[in-house]
């Protein structure tokens, strides 16, 4: 049994937003529950009102709209993983959502809830940032778009206001010849959080890197985009040496913590190794 709270089941998005507006910091939106229930069990979150988003129409869909995938905030991780649409348009995203925890958790956890939780060890932001995704955040005050790379402030702190929820995520469809990879370093068990993980999306034209985006999770207080690595490579001829040098720049982007998955120093070194490997996989042609 958790603490005593009021469980609201609004039927529509405006009703949900009105409830969040009314109760402010005393309320929390509730979707899959996998993160929030654990926090409540440990008395780390004791909201007086839970506003269930389940059952709100239109937030559980995945659709391809022109050049972007739109994923409703209530879509479960497992549904992103298995969606033929996502697999076709952005396989990196399906792959990354498929690496979150275990099937049972992916059946429960929602796309919006996972992002709002702002746990820097969560996998999806790596892929979302590398793909240039953004979220549509809504409140009774209106709607705004936030790039996923700007969504996170600190450990478990996002840019969302207490009355604001994520309605959907927009993921630009990568260029047809772009290659992508998600590398998750799991030296202990397959169901563990990553020691460090890297997503990369890159395009190469005639041996020159025309575009590359790299993002890491579990490496800093927030998911990070390795802009320095990207800058070093973009417009340059792709060589193993260039990639090796560029990957070194990731050191300046990461700021890991000591924990059971490795010391901060080790994680920093591994960030370099896995960034390099991710770049090799995306930028170096197999026959190179």
């Amino acid at each position: 049994m958790l603490h005593d709270f009021t469980f609201h089941r609004p039927g529509t998005l405006p009703e949900a937003l009105a409830l969040l507006d009314e109760h402010g910091y005393d309320a929390r939106p509730f979707a899959g529950g996998t993160a929030l229930v654990v926090l409540m069990k440990q008395s780390l979150a004791l909201p007086e009102h839970l506003v269930s988003l389940d059952g709100i129409e239109g937030m559980s869909e995945i659709r391809l709209d022109g050049e972007a995938l739109h994923i409703g905030a209530l879509v479960r991780h497992r549904d992103v993983e298995t969606s033929p649409l996502v697999r076709e348009a952005a396989p990196l995203l399906a792959e990354t959502y498929g690496r979150v925890a275990t099937v049972r958790i992916r059946n429960m956890a929602t796309v919006g809830g996972g992002l709002a939780h702002a746990d820097p060890a969560q996998d999806p932001p790596a892929a979302l940032i590398a793909l240039g995704a953004s979220v549509r955040a809504v409140s009774s005050r209106g709607a705004r778009t936030i790039a996923v790379e700007d969504l996170f402030f600190d450990y478990y702190e996002s840019a969302l206001e207490p009355d604001e929820i994520i309605e959907s995520v927009a993921v630009p469809r990568p260029a047809p010849d772009a290659r992508s990879v998600y590398l998750k370093f799991l030296p202990r068990t397959e169901d563990d959080y990553a020691t460090v993980a890297v997503a990369a999306v890159g395009e190469v034209d005639d041996g020159v890197c025309t575009d590359v985006r790299v993002a890491l999770i579990a490496a800093a207080p927030t998911p990070v985009r390795a802009t320095e690595v990207e800058r070093t490579l973009t417009g340059q001829p792709v060589t193993a040496e260039a990639i090796r040098e560029a990957a070194e720049a990731v050191r300046d982007h990461v700021d890991p913590l000591d924990d059971f998955r490795g010391s901060a120093d080790y994680k920093r070194e591994m960030a370099v190794v896995f960034t390099r490997r991710a770049l090799e996989r995306t930028l170096l042609a197999e026959d190179a």
């Binding site: 202990r188 068990t189 397959e190 169901d191 959080y193 059971f260």
Partner: peptide, 16 residues
């Protein structure tokens, strides 16, 4: 003791 859950104290899974 700081490994206070099966999230931090990992034991092998069927995949491992």
């Amino acid at each position: 003791v700081t490994t206070l859950s099966f999230g931090d104290y990992k034991i092998p899974t069927s995949f491992d």
